[in-house]
Design a protein around this nucleic acid. Structure first.
Lengths: 150, 150
DNA sequence: GCTGAAAAGGTAATTTT
DNA sequence: AAAATTACCTTTTCAGC
């Protein structure tokens, strides 16, 4: 992972369909050499996948919501993690420092869906306390990659 | 944006290098028709860009951090948003409901960088109060797309 | 939206440094 | 060991239907 690899990743992040010859022209390598580096970067896991950044609103998920969670004392934490990992609306779920134990990022189509998620968390006996934070607007939005199997 | 478009986006999210013929075989269209739909989805903005999902640790950014911010009473909010949008370590920045005004997602190489960011926020006279939340582990990590020009 | 031909681009073996 | 060249072959693209 040298400076050239980093530059290649940066160019691919901007546009992963850019031709190998174009990338090569920027970093000063032949197309086949660029190809070989991309192959290595993918094999090593530095590049996880080639994907698309989409407009969540166009996909019917205009609302971004964060949930702070404190799990129940007796909650099955592994089961909670599986629940989060398999939930279509959960984009991220992080175990965090501080007063709350988990930070969950959700994308939903409407406010009513937030209640459904909270109900599911209750039904799974995961939920101790929670706080819902709704995103009003984003100065930096971040990419949106739709989950498979939705 | 019909069910076929959604399926195409889902397949591209999984692997955006998949051949048009392969995608066509799944959704029941000829390669040229898939191509035309992707062209329209890109033109309409539903697909923002073709990109790569990377391993942040491999790129030297193993730490994920959230910052809750309350801006100073006299802060220039537009300037703050520009600051966030142009900062290499700021992955997301959301104006949110609740006790805090902004939620900022950061990726850093080490804890010392968090202090740098807070110092920059102070220097810009943006920072009222803040709370730093460090991610210990992620049940659902979300994609990482490196910022351009880093 | 499909077909089929033309153009472009990706891939891999071989040679070179 | 890494990169360039070359040739091959898959894939995209575009005209016409």
């Amino acid at each position: 992972m040298d400076e050239t690899d980093r530059k290649i990743i940066e160019l691919l992040a901007e546009d992963s369909r850019r031709a190998l010859a174009d990338i090569g022209a920027v970093v000063g390598l032949a197309p086949s050499s660029v190809n070989e580096r991309i192959r290595r970067l993918t094999a090593s896991g530095a590049i996880r996948r080639f994907t698309v950044d989409t407009d969540p609103a166009a996909l019917g998920l205009p609302m971004l919501v964060y949930l702070w969670l404190a799990l129940r004392e007796d909650a099955d934490e592994a089961a909670f993690r599986r629940f989060a990992a398999s939930h279509r609306r959960v984009l991220e779920c992080h175990h965090v420092t501080g007063a709350w134990s988990y930070l969950v990022k959700l994308r939903v189509g409407a406010v009513t869906e937030i209640e459904s998620v909270l109900a599911e968390l209750k039904a799974g006996r995961f939920l101790g306390r929670s706080e819902t934070v709704i995103v009003l607007s984003s100065a930096v939005a971040g990419p949106h990659v739709p989950a498979p199997g939705v």
